Computed example of a mutant assay.
Amino acid sequence: MTTLRKRTALFFEGNGAYRKAGHYIDIFLISLIMINVIAIVLESVDSLAQQYKHEFLLLELISVSIFAIEYLLRLWSCVERAQYKTLECGNFQRRLKYLLSPLALIDLVAILPSLLMMFITFDLRFLRVLRLLRVFKLTRYSRAMQLLLQSFRDESSSLLAAFFIMSVVLILASCGIYLIEHDIQPDKFGSIPAAMWWAMATLTTVGYGDVVPVTPLGRFFGGMITLVSMGMVAIPTGLLASSFSEQLRKRRLDFSDAVHENLHDGKLDDEQLEYLETLRIKLGLSKQEANKVIKEQLNVRNQHLYCRQCGARQD
């Protein structure tokens, strides 16, 4: 049983001998998710929903069954994964920790709406929106999305500080335009909450134009808020961009360190190449990037092993 569970874990992680099989199953699940998203969008058209009612229902049943089997197998085999196997606790606590992980919660969201539909009556429009959350399962198979989520986690405190400042500016802008335009446009700026719509549209530099100041002072104030907002909106974008770049740099550095540790005798055997290939996939690096790092490490090692003047090997 333990051997089967370990094989299942390796299969879903796509490691070792199961790398190709894991790659194929990832492609299959990604395709199934995209088909589901397209079907849910098309199902919102009443004529198509009535004409292909049974086909949509059959696709939903098949998809939920596959996603449920995947979820249960991942839950059963997660105790064999390296990050959970090292925990000093029982299998129940390990599975509980896995259940609360972001990717496991996303997998649960993918099947929960359809399961709840069997016991609770939902508005079909609300149910479609819930089922569309299935697209977030792509996060598990997309290294780019995982990098973005990691960037959010690493910069969470900075992003919260930026959003706090934006909230303060939003309140100040709403109060300011309310004081200036309230008497002139009581229907549009009748209260501070009503003025927040204008402030939000201005701060995000969207500017819908449905609510605009008409007094000279109000227009001047609106211009100042627009100039301030251009810098405010750029802060979270800059934080995420720099963090995303830093995540890529860290992953390349981790792979470079792994190559350096395995280059004891100046070459890589089949087992070491297999390990580096698994690590490359895990880190989300392309083969071109990985080969470049290997060549760089080989060049660095050769420079230390051989004399630059005569080319003789140094002891």
Rank of each mutant, 00 (worst) to 15 (best):
A234E: 08
F255T: 07
L116H: 06
F28R: 01
F122L: 02
L57Y: 11
Y84T: 01
G90K: 05
L170G: 00
E246S: 15
R280V: 02
F136Y: 07
R125F: 12
T278Q: 14
T86Q: 11
I192Y: 01
A241F: 13
Y52M: 07
L116F: 11
A258G: 08
S65M: 11
R125D: 09
L10A: 14
F136D: 04
H23L: 13
S245F: 11
T3M: 07
S158V: 07
P236N: 07
T139A: 12
M200V: 12
T215N: 05
S156G: 01
L112R: 00
I235S: 04
L263E: 03
K97Q: 10
V168R: 06
I177V: 08
C89Y: 01
Y18W: 14
R5L: 12
R128V: 00
R143Y: 07
L283T: 05
R131H: 02
S63Q: 10
D257A: 11
G222M: 02
L75K: 01
I30S: 10
G231S: 06
K250R: 15
S65W: 00
M232A: 15
A9S: 10
E271S: 13
L240Y: 09
T204G: 04
V214N: 09
Q297V: 05
F122R: 00
S63Y: 11
A173S: 13
S167C: 06
E271T: 10
G207T: 05
H54W: 13
R140M: 09
F28M: 12
G16K: 06
S245W: 11
M118V: 07
D107M: 12
L276H: 04
K292H: 09
R74S: 04
D265C: 03
Q93F: 09
P216E: 10
H182G: 04
R140S: 06
A199Y: 04
S256N: 09
D154V: 13
L112W: 07
E13F: 00
R249Y: 08
A110Q: 09
I66D: 01
L248Q: 14
F119N: 02
L112I: 04
L103G: 02
E246W: 08
L217M: 14
D265G: 08
T205P: 00
Y24V: 15
E271N: 14
S65G: 11
R308I: 14
L32P: 04
S151H: 00
M34D: 10
D187W: 03
R125C: 03
